[in-house]
């Protein structure tokens, strides 16, 4: 089974008053295991709606969506919650960490809602995930004691901890300065290299050059869906940037 996501003739309509708004019109595509795809589009293009559906937060009006071979369209709220818990990792623009809570507790969160995982296992997995994103030495830092880049790393660790089939990143670098953005992109590229499937939703065209495939939405339709032959390395870009103060120092300035 190589297809992680299969979207077939997907439509999503919203009723706004009397009018029906067609947010997505007859979208069809597949995403295979191990792809790193960027979904782009201006505001109102339907990319958020698509992300909600791909993330099982919303369901299509018509058409089918298979996540890891399972049809999502007819699932109820609770089934979709469980599906999100087991198969999807979210990374948001504003990190969405719990305030005054340590990194490890934030990362453990998805596992708390999984009854098959004991507290020892969840601790173990969380430490692994935080090590993966390079925060092994910050397990017990509270979210308000960390810089934006570190917070986003914690959020990525939280998205990794349940071993999802897909990682959905929604403008994951939107709140970060360019240097930190490249660091986060480098982290995504590293995860991709290790075999993770990643969907990165953004309106920033620069990011597309770091992924293997770019899909562009306009007015609810896919207008471009092209593979990227020349994938740039975020790490290489990072190395060309002048070395700035250590992240900790920046963090201190922000605080």
């Amino acid at each position: 089974m190589n297809e992680i996501i299969k979207v077939d003739n997907l439509c999503r309509d919203f009723k706004v008053g009397e009018e029906v708004v067609h947010a997505l019109r007859n979208i069809t595509f597949t995403i295979n295991k191990g792809e790193f795809i960027t979904i782009m589009g201006a505001s109102g293009s339907g990319k958020s709606t698509l992300l909600n559906i791909l993330g099982c937060l919303d369901v299509a009006t018509s058409g089918e969506y298979y996540l890891d071979g399972v049809s999502v369209r007819k699932m109820d709220r609770n089934k979709r919650a469980t599906l999100r818990n087991r198969k999807i990792g979210f990374v948001f623009q504003s990190y969405n960490l719990l305030p005054k809570t340590t990194a490890i507790e934030n990362v453990e969160l998805p596992l708390l809602y999984n009854k098959n995982i004991t507290s020892t296992q969840s601790r173990q997995k969380s430490i692994e995930a935080l090590t993966e994103v390079g925060l092994a030495d910050r397990l017990y830092h509270r979210s308000n004691q960390m810089s934006g880049g570190q917070q986003q790393r914690v959020a990525i660790a939280r998205a990794l901890v349940n071993d999802p089939v897909i990682i959905l990143a929604d403008e994951a670098t939107g709140n970060l300065d360019s240097r930190t953005s490249y660091e986060i992109l480098a982290l995504f590229q590293k995860l991709h290299k290790e075999g993770k499937t990643i969907i990165f939703v953004t309106h920033n065209p620069e990011i597309a050059s770091f992924s293997g495939r770019t899909m562009v939405l306009k007015d609810g339709r896919v207008i471009h869906d092209t593979p990227n032959m020349k994938i740039a390395s975020a790490k290489a870009v990072l190395d060309t940037l002048p070395v700035e103060e250590e992240e900790e120092d920046i963090a201190r300035h922000i605080v």
């Binding site: 709220r77 609770n78 469980t82 999100r84 969405n96 998805p110 809602y113 939280r158 349940n162």
Partner: peptide, 16 residues
């Protein structure tokens, strides 16, 4: 509300 949204998106059901 944001915390609740996060919990739901990472798999908390309404009942939780």
């Amino acid at each position: 509300i944001k915390e609740i949204g996060l919990r739901m998106s990472i798999g908390a059901k309404g009942i939780h």
